[in-house]
Every structure is written in structure tokens, then in C-alpha cells.
């Protein structure tokens, strides 16, 4: 496929101008300032005091940082794959024009409309507490359930379920990507007598890889920064015993509740570096498996 070059060099920048301006005005300044804060002791109210690498050294030895990294990595490693597989499966089912499809799509999308509303916290408790719906179901088959949401060994998994439950966004993106695949491919496959599963793996999936890649990258970036689920369900503490202490929740506790914004900024930049490395690896690997039908 030949490379498509048709614009004058400045036209690229012209289309990029809003973004460039926005980056300089609204993004770059806060980012640079937060980088500066990360080398200071800054209690939000009085002016920052330069402390060099102190915050970074302190966080390397902070057991709650280690714990929160462990919690966050577990959340990402378990939540993201399940959410995406679930979203992809349902997108494939919902692509077809079966009767009632619009209602079905809407029903399955409903949980994602909720976001991090305060109501979610209470709903999740109604499901997973001692007398919650889950335990009532379990008791029908004679199992005595536990207090899922408040036990240190299960609390995080209820939050992972919450992430999977709100799978609507990646599903919608998959649906958009599926739509983009030209019908010609399917017609050709049908003529060749390919099976449904074969068509999925040899046509649908390869052509969907740009969207799969997008969903993987963005879901991982967002899951690393997950804050709201634990904030609303643990009441902002990471309870029980830090088992739901997401990295950004700890950052929030330090910055907003303990007035250590310098330390919080250092935490933020460490997370940025972690996410950046993972994203860079994903982009490198992408050259091997993402297929652009250009």
C-alpha cells in the first residue's frame, strides 16, 4: 500500500492548533507545576518548600505505597481482561439485527450510564453485604455467604466486578469498530464457505485490532488511575485494612486529607512513569498484531 501524502507541512499544524493551544494553556502548566510540587513540601496553603528528592525517597519506603501498588496492579490485571472480553463478546452478539436488539443493548448499557454516582455505593452494598442479594441467592443453595464488601480478602474483587459490570464503554467502541468493517469481506468469506467461528477469527478480529488496541490501552490507562469506585464504596479510606486502597485513592488521601500535596505530586509522577512504560511497550508490541486497513 503506498503512503498517502497530500498535505503541505503547515496544514498538519493548522489542524493541530486547538490541541496545541489547549495543551499549552490548560495541560502543560498544571503538569509542570505538579512536577515542581513533587520536589517540595507543599501543604496547599503555605508556599512550597524545596526538599529535593525527599518525597521520592519517602514513597519508595512507604508500606502503604507498596500495598496500593499491589491493589492497583491486581485490579488492572484482573479487571481489564475480563471487562474487555465481556465487552467484545456482547458487541459481537449485539451487532446482529435480532428482534428486540435495541432494548437489549440499552439494558446491557444501563449499568455504565451510572458512572460513579453516590447511588452506586449503596447499590453495591445491597448486593454484597451480609444480607445482600448475592447471599440471599447463595442461601437458596444452602451456602452461607460472608460480608463480601467488608472482608479484606474479598473486598477488592467486588470492585473488580463493578469494573466488569460497567463494560458499556468498550462495548460501544467495539460496536463502532465492527460497523466499520466492510461487508465485502464477509461476503467473500461466505462464498469461500468459512464457518462463523472461522470468520470471526480470520476476518472480524484482525480488522477490529485497531479498536481492540485502543480499548486495551485506554482501559489500562484508566484502570491504573481508578479512584471513584474505592472512593465511594470504601468511603474514601481504602477499607477494610487497605485492601481497596487504590494508588490514586492513597494519593488523594495524602494530598487532600493530610495536606501533603508535594508527596501526592510525587506519587502522581511515579504512576505516570509506570503507565507510560506500560503504554510504550504496548505500542511497540502493537506493530506485530494491530492491522490498519489503510
Amino acid at each position: 500500500m503506498k503512503k498517502y501524502k497530500f498535505n503541505r507541512p503547515w496544514e498538519g499544524y493548522a489542524f493541530l492548533t486547538p490541541w496545541l493551544l489547549g495543551f499549552l494553556l490548560f495541560t502543560a502548566i498544571p503538569m509542570v507545576l505538579s512536577l515542581y510540587f513533587s520536589f517540595t513540601q507543599y501543604d496547599v496553603v503555605t508556599s512550597p518548600k524545596w526538599v529535593g528528592l525527599e518525597n521520592y525517597i519517602e514513597l519508595a519506603n512507604d508500606p502503604r505505597v507498596h500495598k496500593s501498588l499491589q491493589v492497583t496492579f491486581t485490579y488492572v490485571a484482573l479487571g481489564v481482561p475480563f471487562q474487555l472480553i465481556f465487552a467484545l463478546l456482547l458487541a459481537v452478539v449485539f451487532k446482529n439485527n435480532i428482534p428486540g436488539i435495541r432494548i437489549y443493548r440499552a439494558i446491557y448499557y444501563l449499568p455504565s450510564l451510572f458512572g460513579g454516582s453516590v447511588a452506586v455505593a449503596i447499590l453495591w452494598r445491597q448486593l454484597f453485604n451480609k444480607e445482600g442479594a448475592i447471599n440471599q441467592l447463595l442461601s437458596l443453595v444452602g451456602i452461607e455467604g460472608k460480608n463480601w464488601i467488608a472482608s479484606p480478602d474479598t473486598a477488592l474483587y467486588t470492585l473488580i466486578l463493578l469494573l466488569i459490570w460497567q463494560f458499556g464503554s468498550p462495548m460501544v467502541i467495539f460496536l463502532g469498530g465492527l460497523k466499520q468493517i466492510s461487508l465485502d469481506y464477509y461476503e467473500a468469506a461466505e462464498i469461500d464457505g468459512a464457518s462463523k467461528i472461522g470468520t470471526f477469527f480470520h476476518i472480524t478480529l484482525p480488522l477490529l485490532t485497531p479498536m481492540v488496541f485502543f480499548n486495551i490501552v485506554m482501559t489500562i490507562i484508566n484502570a491504573f488511575q481508578a479512584f471513584t469506585p474505592s472512593y465511594i464504596i470504601s468511603g474514601g479510606t481504602g477499607a477494610p485494612v487497605d485492601s481497596t486502597l487504590f494508588y490514586t485513592l492513597y494519593l488523594y488521601i495524602k494530598g487532600f486529607q493530610h495536606f501533603s500535596m508535594g508527596y501526592a505530586s510525587a506519587l502522581a509522577w511515579v504512576l505516570l512513569i509506570i503507565i507510560a512504560i506500560i503504554t510504550a511497550i504496548m505500542f511497540l508490541l502493537a506493530q506485530k498484531w494491530v492491522y490498519y486497513d489503510e
Binding site: 498544571p30 496547599v44 488511575q225 494519593l251 505530586s265 504512576l271
Partner: peptide, 10 residues
């Protein structure tokens, strides 16, 4: 990739 909470104050 930079968490929202530290951008907020600046």
C-alpha cells in the same frame, strides 16, 4: 496519564 487530583490544584 497524570492523575487528575494533582492537576486539579494548579
Amino acid at each position: 496519564m497524570l492523575p487528575f487530583h494533582v492537576r486539579l490544584i494548579p
